[in-house]
């Protein structure tokens, strides 16, 4: 009798052990798949880019001021696309970072509970608008509006695309910044109030620096989003690669170029086909740099309470 009880209890334990192992393996597979997909993307980008660099030198790629891979007189200088990307992203961030930060400070430190409960979901709704809608909003509403003030502004221009993209990014910046500020413990704020500080002084001099690592993370996410944004710039900023730092001009970004060429019918394995991958790799490296910078900032300024 006791013999029988013992063995059945052991059997139970073994079953439980097997089940644990299966669950663990499933969890591992889920985690592994994201890593595997990332690695696969990088491998494909690098392999196709290596094929590209067999025909075009890296020096030309980085220094040529023209990007005309589909012309008879083909030039493969990435700078015009990089410039377009940085200018549109720069305009967007000039809108999103100040506004997003101010909104975060207001919602976290000043807004009454009810206002926050309404404003936060509405802001996050901005994020749910399809980017193609933003793109046409930029092209058909913001550009004509800007032309009213700047009559010489062309129909496609980086300024309006960047402004609208900035509005799109605001919730990214404000929402994460606000979460970071709200995570600052109340006793730190009380310390400031107890010194006779006003709400504004407390928000600016104590809460914002205390939440800096989270705010920096929000900025980095916004930057990555701005650099990777495709639809708005493809629709509103024009498709012509144009090496300029003037936001009032039209120019193609890296993403806009990829859209344009991907939609065409380039033969698989041709040099033109490979330019898609080399542009993609450039984009990946740019966002990687910002993500690493963000990671470093987070570690450097992380506060432990």
């Amino acid at each position: 009798m006791t013999e029988h009880l013992k063995s059945s209890r052991f059997a139970h334990r073994r079953m439980r052990h097997v089940r644990e192992r299966i669950i663990e393996s499933l969890l591992f597979l889920a985690a592994f798949s994201s890593v595997a997909i990332t690695v696969a993307i990088v491998v494909i980008l690098v392999r196709e880019s290596l094929g590209f660099f067999e025909h075009v030198s890296i020096i030309d790629f980085l220094t040529d001021t023209q990007w005309t891979p589909l012309f008879d007189d083909a030039h493969y200088g990435i700078m015009p696309l990089v410039a377009g990307t940085l200018v549109t992203a720069g305009v967007a961030l000039a809108v999103a970072i100040p506004l997003g930060t101010i909104i975060a400070i207001y919602l976290s430190e000043f807004a009454p509970h009810r206002v926050r409960e309404v404003v936060k979901p509405v802001l996050e709704l901005l994020d749910g608008i399809p980017t193609v809608v933003y793109g046409y909003f930029a092209l058909l509403f913001v550009t004509p509006l800007l032309q009213y003030f700047f009559p010489e502004l062309p129909g496609f221009n980086m300024l309006s695309a960047g402004l609208v993209m900035g509005v799109m990014i605001i919730p990214y910046v404000s929402s994460i910044s606000e979460d970071a500020m709200r995570a600052v413990p109340m006793h730190i704020r009380e310390g400031s109030y107890a010194m006779g500080a006003t709400r504004f002084q407390t928000a600016l001099r104590v809460v914002t620096p205390a939440a800096f690592s989270g705010i920096a993370a929000a900025y980095i996410l916004g930057i990555s989003r701005a650099i990777g944004e495709t639809m708005i710039v493809a629709v509103a900023a024009g498709m012509q690669p144009n090496l300029t730092w003037n936001p009032m001009e039209p120019a193609a970004t890296i993403t806009a170029y990829i859209v344009q060429v991907s939609l065409g019918d380039l033969p698989h394995g041709s040099l033109g086909y490979q330019t898609i991958f080399v542009a993609g790799l450039t984009l990946l490296l740019m966002t990687l740099v910002f993500n690493i910078a963000g990671h470093w900032l987070r570690r450097r300024f992380r506060e432990v309470y």
Binding site: G191, G196, V206
Partner: peptide, 14 residues
């Protein structure tokens, strides 16, 4: 401004 306070948990500012 006239009455200062020290808290239970040390709460230095960042």
């Amino acid at each position: 401004m006239r009455i200062g306070m020290v808290f239970q948990k040390p709460n230095p500012f960042p």
